[in-house]
Structures are given as C-alpha cells and as structure tokens.
C-alpha cells in the first residue's frame, strides 16, 4: 500500500480528518462492499468482476468510465496473472487514481488576473447550491486578505437576491444588486465597473439556475460573458460549474452542455457529505477533462475546501489501508 502511506505522510492530520469525515458515507459503502467482495471470492472470476462492476456503478462513477475501467482491470489480471484478491484491491485503487491524474497535471489553483479584479462566474442548474457556494468561496478568499465583491446576477428566482445579500452580511462582503427581473447583464456590468473603480481583488458573480437544455437561458449566459469580457479582457478568469454531488449520470450532460456554451474552467461539487456516491468526480474527469476545484463537505461556511485528489482517494479508501 505504498501510495496510501505516502499520502498519509504528506498531509496534516487535521486536513485529512475533514476529508475523512466528509467521505464517511461514500467510504463506508464503497470500502465495505469491496472488502466483502474479497472475502466472498477466492480468486478473480466472472462473478467477482460482475459484482465489482456493480459496486462501481452504484457509486455513480459513470457507466462508460466503469466499462473502460473493468476492461483494464481484467487485462491486468490476465497479463500479470493475479489471483490474490488483496493485491487486486490495490490495483483497483491504483487504476482509479490513474483515471484522475491521467494526461495532465491537474491544478485546483484559481487562475488570477494580475492587473485588476479577478472575475469568478458561478453557473449551474437549479438547486445545486450556487449562492451558498459563493458565500463559502468569498469566505475562503477573505481569509487570504483579499477584497471581495459579490454580484447578485440571479435576478430570476424569487428570493435569490435577498439570499445573497444575507450571505454578504455574514461574510462581510459588499453585494451589488438590482431589483428582481432586471437584466442580469446589467447587474454584472454595474458590479464589475464598481470592482474596477474601487480596486477589488475578486468579483464573484451569482447567476440564475438554468437547465442545460434551455436554449434561451444558455444564450443569456453568452451575453453575460460578453459584458464581462468587455470590461476586463480575458475575464471571467474562472467559470465554475456548480454540481450537486447527488446528481447521477446527468452530471456528465451538465458539464458537456455548459462547456459547449462557455469555457467552464472548473467544477465545484457540493453536498458531498450527504451522498454515499462521490464517484461522479472520476466520470467527469475522464469523460470531460474538467478539474474539480472545490468540494462542499458540510453546511458550515468553513466546509468548502479546495479539491485535492490525493486526499479524496485517501478519504475514499481509508478503510482498506492497514495501519502499518
């Protein structure tokens, strides 16, 4: 178990504890199923593989990702003549890790603007937690002594503006807003203009939830991007797609459709603490090559963390690691 011990030595105990807790649900399910599997079978046979596939799919790891993964595992078993299930478990974890780190160096760092405000645009379908996420990100950035401005770009949903204003108070950030049903692009213009004049470091823009198959709402997003880009070249520096971790395979559709319209630079995965299935992280990475930048592990302001794959893998498989 070289990989795990390496991870364990890299991170502080406190950091790991949070991941540990946040992934409790996922892990309990996942690890105990994997362990059961190893106890049930003596050698890797067809039934073993069927059940393994079942476990992975029910963790919401995308169906395509799982099928490809199963092929690789079966190949390795054949090629390397593996018949020890404990050894195979290690390989499984290894291969899952590879899915995530494959191809490129992934970074959870935000892309920042060196000359002027950095603009972060938050988008996503309805009810994923965009507004709450903005408050949490603002809180993180403020801790780094940045001057943060919030923009209430969701002028559609009843109560959305009030919600952001209330959060603004709690994290002591100023909020730019206009009345309900105004043109979101107008609010955004006002916000960015203010941010430039008053030298803010970050502008966090909230937008209305939109289902990815609604053409007119997706067009609206394009317009917002134009307004932002006009005021600050190359902005938004980050377009963060917020996804509810309880979403199943549709999460892949969401990323695909939003990517077509706008340059999605990262994912924020919310509500991970409530689900037994964090697997969608892997599917998104493999099928769409968009990195997860933040994850939400609880309802508290402090419970949003920059995503770290090594900690994630640790959180997921902790129960399988024997303390040495």
């Amino acid at each position: 178990m070289g990989l795990f011990n390496k991870i364990k030595t890299i991170f502080s105990k406190k950091e790991l504890e949070l991941y540990d807790k946040g992934f409790e649900k996922t892990r309990d399910n996942f690890v105990s199923s994997l362990n059961n599997l190893s106890n049930k079978y003596k050698t890797p046979n067809d039934l073993y593989f069927d059940e393994l596939e079942e476990i992975l799919i029910s963790a919401d790891i995308g169906v395509n990702t799982v099928l490809g993964f199963m092929d690789r595992i079966k190949n390795r078993v054949k090629k390397e003549n593996i018949d020890d299930l404990e050894e195979l478990q290690e390989i499984i974890v290894d291969e899952l890790f590879i899915i995530y780190v494959e191809d490129d160096v992934l970074t959870n760092k935000l892309n920042v603007n060196d000359n002027g405000p950095t603009v972060l645009l938050f988008i996503g379908v309805n009810g994923v937690g965009k507004t709450t996420t903005i408050a949490k990100v603002a809180n993180l950035l403020k801790k780094g002594n940045s001057k943060v401005l919030l923009v209430a770009g969701d002028t559609f949903r009843a109560g959305a503006i009030e919600q952001l204003i209330e959060w603004g108070k709690r994290v002591s950030c100023e909020v730019v807003s206009m009345e309900e049903s105004s043109d979101p692009s107008a609010v955004i213009y006002k916000g960015i203009d203010k941010a430039i004049k008053e030298q803010y470091d970050y502008v966090l823009i909230d937008t209305a939830g939109r289902l990815q198959n609604k053409v007119n709402l997706m067009n609206e997003l394009e317009k917002m991007n134009k307004v932002i880009g006009k005021l600050i070249p190359n902005a938004p520096q980050e377009t963060l797609l917020v996804i509810d971790a309880t979403t199943g395979q549709n999460a892949i559709n969401q990323v695909k459709s939003f990517k077509e319209i706008t340059n999605v630079t990262g994912i924020v995965l919310t509500k991970l603490d409530g689900t037994a299935k964090g697997g969608i992280v892997l599917a998104i990475k493999e099928e769409l090559k968009v990195p997860v930048k933040y994850i939400g592990l609880g309802e508290g302001l402090e419970d949003l963390k920059p995503f770290d794959i090594e900690k994630y893998i640790y959180g997921l498989f902790k129960g399988m690691i024997k303390d040495e």
């Binding site: 919401d60 979403t247 199943g248 549709n250 689900t275």
Partner: peptide, 12 residues
C-alpha cells in the same frame, strides 16, 4: 426529489 438524482436516490 430532483429527477437528476443518481444511485443515491434509494438511500435518500
């Protein structure tokens, strides 16, 4: 229930 929910639906 959000109809986009995944395999966790039954637990929920």
């Amino acid at each position: 229930i959000d109809s986009m929910i995944g395999q966790d639906s039954i637990n929920v």
